[in-house]
């Protein structure tokens, strides 16, 4: 019998520090038992509970794509007891995993359509999985245009940098990478202009005037930008026609991205978001991650915006 509470052993085969603040790390995991690996079949959007004996568990989105064979990737931001312990792990260490858990991005519905992916900060993980999945040769034909808009606070906070630079060059997709504030090495393709107010107020702590935001024609090609994700989205202005949008990012980004998508003509049924809640069991039993009558762990974490509008705003 399969006990859903007992983790399967996985070995950490690599650890990559993703950002300058060094609080986001990607862990490459390999199953200790082949049978476990076979059982662990998932699609982009799902998550798993990573477990460290004596410390507990934490739910983390799967960052690798099912098309990447032989390993799993998890990108973890250090926050609590478990993630701190995980960050202190070394290569070769064995930890536990339970999953895959939750639902997936609507891969089937996306097939035959354009895909718009909007990500912010370190919540880019399951979106990376999706991008990798779509870009996989045998899958690529099933999807139409792929547009990726990804932003972070500053260049140091962008994750999966190597891949980002690769995607920038890759044909058959457009990649827009933006940072709230660049540094001297960050060469935005666009010139900042002081006339356009930010879509949401800049953080008060920084103070003073920000340099400004791009105004002008829609951005036809990908590239590197300076500005908030919603601003870039507005400029990119992807066509809603035949397009499914996936969003994952900090609440404030989501809050300002949704109206822009709506203005662009995206219907709530074609926008999908991935949510976060405090979880324990991950299998819809422990009763704490519900939003209205939906359990994020089981009925989510991916929700159509249309569905979310029907649920209480308590997350």
């Amino acid at each position: 019998m399969n006990n859903p509470y007992v983790p399967m052993p996985v070995r950490i085969s690599d650890i990559i520090t993703e950002n300058e603040a060094r609080d986001i790390k990607t862990f490459k995991l390999i199953f200790e038992n082949k049978e476990d690996e076979k059982k662990f079949s998932f699609l982009p959007g799902q998550f798993a509970e990573l477990s460290i004996l004596g410390f507990g568990e934490c739910p983390i989105g799967i960052a690798s794509s099912p098309t990447e064979d032989g390993f799993l990737l998890f990108t973890v931001k250090r926050a609590g007891v478990v993630t701190t312990r995980l960050h202190r792990a070394e290569i070769g260490e064995t930890i536990g995993i339970r999953g895959p858990l939750g639902n997936t991005y609507p891969i089937q519905d996306m097939e035959g359509h354009n895909v718009l992916i909007i990500g912010g900060g370190f919540a880019f993980t399951t979106l990376r999985s999706t991008i990798k999945y779509i870009l996989e040769k045998r899958n690529r034909g099933s999807f139409k245009d792929l547009t990726v808009i990804y932003g972070a606070r500053n260049p140091g906070e962008l994750i999966y940098k190597d891949e980002l630079w690769q995607w920038e060059k890759q044909s058959g997709m457009k990649t827009y990478i933006t940072v709230d504030k660049g540094d001297k090495n960050w060469n935005p393709l666009t010139l900042p202009s002081p006339r356009c107010p930010p879509p949401y107020p800049p953080p008060t702590s920084g103070g003073g005037q920000r340099r400004g935001y791009y105004v002008g024609e829609g951005l036809k090609e990908g590239g590197r930008y300076e500005g908030f994700v919603p601003t870039i989205l507005k400029e990119v202005a992807p066509s809603p026609k035949d397009t499914i949008a996936l969003i994952c990012g900090p609440p404030i980004m989501i809050k300002f991205t949704l109206p822009i998508l709506t203005n662009l003509g995206f219907v709530p049924e074609s926008i999908f978001l991935s949510l976060e809640m405090r979880m324990k069991c991950g299998i819809g039993k422990c009763g704490r991650c519900n939003i209205g009558h939906k359990y994020v762990c089981k009925d989510g974490p991916v929700f159509a915006y249309a569905e979310l509008q029907r649920l209480p705003n308590e997350y």
Binding site: A21, R22, D23, K25, R78, T83, T84, H87, R88, A89
Partner: peptide
């Protein structure tokens, strides 16, 4: 040398 909680001791 910057050290944070997540660095392996």
């Amino acid at each position: 040398i910057p050290i944070n909680d997540g660095d392996r001791p």
